[in-house]
Simulated scan of single mutants.
Amino acid sequence: MKRIGVLLLTAVFCLLTVGGCGSGSSENSNAPVTIVATDNGWDSQKLHNAIAELIVEHAYEGYEFEVSTASSTMNWQALTAGDIDLDIESWTDNVATYEEDKANGYIIDLGVLVPDSAQGLYVPRYVIEGDGERGIEPMAPDLKTVEDLKKYPHVFPDDEEPDKGRIYGSIPGWMADEILYKKYQYYGLDKYYNYVRLGSEATLFASLESAYNQGEPWVGYCYEPTWITGKLDLVLLEDAPYDPELYLEGKCSFPAQQLKIVSSSKFPERAPELVDFFKKYRTGSELISKGLAHLIETGASHRETAIWLLKEYDYLLDEWLPVENAEKMRAYLNSLQTN
């Protein structure tokens, strides 16, 4: 998948290109329109982007698809400025300025991509209940809530500072990490635990899977849909009921979110025929988790997994696309068998 920077390359492009960065202002009226989507770093979004790229470039004419790889905060700023077209799989409840940006007309909600999601602090189920088949005794039998973690730092020791426990935070640059760190402080967990940020989603999930395979305790950030939550038996720790006034301060549960497709206000003018597709583009936690599991189990790329998913769940093309475009997409997918 083609990639560009968020701000620097956009600025350079605007300076060097005659006519600036406006849509359709190229000297060559037949030049393809480049659609730019956010890539905030997590696998489910990468897979959703790969599916969208295939559709945009091969079910329609005259478009190219690129992604902007940056933190979710930087990408959101570029989206509201109109430098990025789409945020596919947008966790809008994590964005402090979402409602304001929408009210100001900077962004448009195009549709709901995943109607069911979750995020927060998770532990393996055997930490609470044990696992007789694996010979694991319960380690924290009364652990139910985030605040209960105060009683169990010894269960989750930090190897580098054994007198404290270790909580694995979210990914640096993710908005969820800002909220989770406030939660860590709000509940006074900073007195008992170190908050450890690993550099990427892959590293975070590798630490969880390694601990799980060895039957060791682990507590940290996770979200759904992901391949890891589909593969492992995990428990989301309870928190105070969601309150929109308290959520961004880390004082209650993460909301069960609808993951959306959000566009800049300029996108409908730049690609009017794609708007209908993105309004209908819908997957769901179960479907995308199956795709992510295929990616991990086979070692396929996100693009290869997207191709597999579109072939395996062919009916999606009829739900998302007009008949002519769906058949064009099928013809492209079938042509890959002979390449």
Rank of each mutant, 00 (worst) to 15 (best):
Y181P: 03
L208Y: 06
V155S: 01
L204F: 08
T229S: 12
S170A: 14
E147N: 01
T203M: 12
R197C: 14
P241F: 01
K150H: 07
Y186R: 08
Y221Q: 13
I179M: 00
D233L: 05
W174F: 02
K183Y: 02
F156M: 04
T229G: 10
P225G: 06
I228G: 03
Y192L: 10
E209R: 12
A176C: 15
K182Y: 05
K183L: 12
E224A: 13
Y242A: 04
V219H: 10
Y223W: 15
T145E: 07
E161T: 12
Y168H: 15
Y223C: 08
Y181R: 13
D190M: 12
V235T: 12
V235E: 10
R197V: 11
G220K: 10
P241A: 15
I167A: 01
W218T: 08
N194K: 15
K183C: 04
Y186Q: 07
D233M: 12
N194E: 15
I167C: 03
T203W: 01
K150Y: 06
K182C: 01
S170P: 00
Y186I: 09
E245P: 02
T203Y: 09
E245Y: 10
A202D: 13
E238V: 13
G173N: 09
A240P: 00
N194Y: 14
E224H: 05
G173S: 08
Y192S: 09
L198D: 03
D190S: 01
P153R: 10
G230H: 13
Y242Q: 00
L236S: 03
G215W: 13
I228A: 14
S200F: 05
T145M: 10
Y223K: 15
Y187P: 01
D239Y: 02
K231T: 12
D177P: 00
L180H: 04
P217A: 05
E245G: 04
P172A: 15
E216R: 09
P162K: 10
K183M: 04
K231M: 14
A202K: 08
P217Y: 12
Q185C: 09
T145S: 11
D159F: 06
D233P: 02
G215L: 02
S210M: 02
F205N: 09
Y193T: 08
D148Y: 02
I167Q: 07
G220T: 11
A211P: 00
E160F: 06
L189P: 02
